[in-house]
Structures are given as C-alpha cells and as structure tokens.
Amino acid sequence: MTDLTDAMADLDEQKVLNIVNEQIRTNKPVQILDELRRGLDIVGNRFSKNEYFLVELVMSADIFKKAMAIVEPKLLATQRASAKGKVVIGTVQGDIHYIGKNLVVAFLKSNGFEVYDLGEDVPPEKFVDTLKKTGSSILALSGLITTTHDVMRTTIEALKTAGIRKKVKVMIGGGDIGEEIVKYTGADAFGRDALSAVELAKKFTAGTK
C-alpha cells in the first residue's frame, strides 16, 4: 500500500494534497487516481465495519474531491470520459432528506460514475424524463420515511408505464429498507449505505455489458 493510499484511508487531508501536488509533476495522473480510489475503498471498508461513521465518509469524499481538482486537468480527454456508467438519482416525492443520498452521489462520482442528481421531492415524471434524456441504465431512489415506500413503488410503476422499466436497473435506499421493501416497490435491489450503492451500480453495469 502506498503513502497516498494510506493517507487517503486515514483521512489525512494535508498529506493527501501534499503527495498529489508532488506526484502530479512526475507520476501518471491515472496512477494517482488509482491510489486515491484504493484509499477510498479502505474508507468504505472501515465504514462497513463501523470503524468509520458518517462524518468520516463525508470527509473522505471531500478530500477526494479536492485531490481530483488537482488531478483531473492532467487526465487525457479519453481517460476523463471513461465513465463506468450513468446513474440517475434523487429523493422521491414527499421526502426532503438528502444526507444519505448526497453521500451516495459523492461515492458514485468518485468511483467513476456519471451521476445525474435530481435533488429531493422528485416527482416520478422527472425521473422518467431524465432517464430517457440521458440514456442512463441505473436509477437510484432514496427515501428516509416509511411512507415513502409507496412513493418508490409509484415511481417504479411510472417507469413501466413509460416503457423503460426493462432498460433500467433500480436500486433503493433510505430508512428501514430491506428485501421485503425491494419486493414491495418492484425495485431490483437495495443498498444499506453509500458503499453498497457503489457495489450495486458496478454489478448493474457489469450485467448490461
């Protein structure tokens, strides 16, 4: 494991930025990006094991973003465009919570996904429109309150009505969500946290290729 990966995993912002600034002159940007992502994976791992909590997750996404601001201009156009896949995401209609959703957005982005974040209280039509417009094959729906399970179901039905349900994989997340709610809403899978959302997105894109 490299110093950069270590520093990223330990959330040492100053050290991360120092190393990136230094290496950007001599090292390949792709290599740097790779080491950062590996550090981020470790953060995710620690979060899953409850060693890190929300704050650490937010910090890691923040440090990564700052590092990317240095690395990105040096990436070749072809490297930049190598997005893993497109994800449309939002908190469903009738709910305005966004902390969890924004973490999912940050982690999807740092893992190379192109993310269309529609914000909160998003009506079903808006999800459908954006999926059509962007040609995204993944939809991520967030809802914290139990009563939003019905709204998720309505949203997924809107995809069926629009005839795009088969082209889109749907993941859901939020409070009190499990296999039962996946069945109830007609989604494809649920994620417990930002990391499992990334895993699901990877699995979904691997399946479609």
Binding site: V58, D62, N102, V105, D117, G119, E120
Partner: peptide, 8 residues
Amino acid sequence: RIANHTSN
C-alpha cells in the same frame, strides 16, 4: 460540509 447544491 455536505452542502446541498442540488436542492430543487
């Protein structure tokens, strides 16, 4: 900071 830039 987890500033919400995407609010409708």
